[in-house]
């Protein structure tokens, strides 16, 4: 048979009191602390997840920007190539036009020079011919020929003079 003495009762009371005190002053604060700690960790994890998301977005944005920049770079290079081709074409065209202008100018000058040369040659040839003809005629004109020249040329001149004088006389009479 179990003997219930006073010490056992005291031990039970003591134990119950201890449990109560432990529950009251140790278990609850520990649970609360653990809850707070858990909440804190949850918050941190949430923050990390949010930051990760933000970083992911930033990464996507940067990737997009990189892609755009690459496209822009390609477009700019293409545009620059086109512009360079246009400028080259323009320079070549201008150079060709300038060349044509210079060529035409030189052709014009050359033509003028040739014309001038021909004119000078013609004049010189005519002068030489004139001198030769003069010398030839001087050696060939005899008094008889001179008489013939006077008779013919002076007759012609006199006819013209008579006509002029008649016109003048007629006008005076009118």
């Amino acid at each position: 048979m179990i003997r219930v003495d006073r010490s056992i009762v005291l031990q039970v009371v003591n134990f119950v009191a201890l449990v109560f005190l432990l529950f009251r002053f140790l278990f609850k604060p520990v649970v609360k602390a653990l809850d707070r700690r858990s909440q804190l960790i949850k918050g941190e994890l949430q923050k990390i997840a949010e930051e990760k998301e933000t970083l992911e977005k930033m990464k996507q944005s940067l990737l997009e920007e990189k892609k755009n920049l690459k496209e822009e770079y390609v477009r700019t290079i293409d545009q620059a190539r086109l512009e360079a081709a246009k400028i080259k074409e323009e320079i070549v065209r201008e150079a060709f036009e300038e060349g044509e202008k210079i060529r035409k100018e030189y052709e014009k000058r050359a033509k003028k020079e040739v014309e001038k040369l021909f004119s000078t040659m013609k004049e010189e040839m005519v002068n030489v011919a004139e001198e030769v003809i003069k010398k030839f005629l001087q050696s060939q004109i005899t008094p008889e020929i001179q008489t013939q020249i006077i008779a013919n040329m002076f007759e012609e001149a006199m006819k013209q003079l008579e006509a002029v004088m008649e016109v003048g006389h007629g006008q005076r009479n009118d």
Binding site: E130, K134, L137, Q138, I149, I150, M153, A157, L161
Partner: peptide, 29 residues
């Protein structure tokens, strides 16, 4: 060279070969 030049009143009647040659030369040039 040949022909004559006559100075009659205020006129010069030039029937010289020299002048004829000169006219021909001018026409050619």
């Amino acid at each position: 060279i040949g022909g004559i030049v006559v100075f009659f009143r205020d006129m010069i009647i030039d029937c010289s070969v020299k002048t004829q040659l000169q006219r021909m030369k001018e026409a050619i040039l």
